[in-house]
Amino acid sequence: MKYIINVVVLFILFTSCSGDMGNKNQESTTSSEVEDVETNVISDLSIYNLPSKWTTQNNQEIELNSLQGDVLVMVMIYTSCKAACPRLVADMRNIDVQIPEKNKKNVKFILVSIDPKTDTPERLKAFSIENKMEEDQWLFLRGDEESTREFAAVLAVNYKRISPLDFTHSNIISVFNQKGELEHQQEGLGVDNKETVETILALTSK
């Protein structure tokens, strides 16, 4: 036990102190073992197992699983954020421009708010206009505190409110396949998004 704890602590010390946090790429290998023939069968690892309801920037109520069939590129942000989020948003746009129009039909770029209290649909809408993210592929989602915490848990995004208007949070962009299974995650700001783009292209070229 002592040994295990020491290893855990050492690991944490190592990873949390290893200089520039912005250069970490993490790849996950969660492709399903069995290819389901029917497209409406979701696997154990699919985010569509989550029952959560969300509201969009257009004030529409949607169920998460209504997104099934599209490739999802997801990030968690909050609109009053001044530091990292503009860069995360820039990273998302940067990925967006590298996807050809014919692939983009089946891709959704999703920004999930970690601050549902502040980020009303109106506010999300304004944010989308400000950041020129008004085309169909951009989707902003707002849930309640509980579903947001749960969703973050699935994405392995950690966040904490540190003042009424500020959060500290992980910078992770996740790519989900058409069945809602995690295919790839890039972690950090301004990192090389080559693998993320390749993953999206591969998924939408099938």
Partner: peptide, 26 residues
């Protein structure tokens, strides 16, 4: 705990990076 994933050890936003990381670093 309900919000176990509010402890940040890596990949934080730049500005707020001090919040928890300083706990574990030198």
């Amino acid at each position: 705990t309900q919000d176990f994933n509010s402890v940040l050890l890596s990949g934080e936003s730049r500005k707020d990076v001090d919040a928890d990381r300083n706990l574990f670093c030198g």
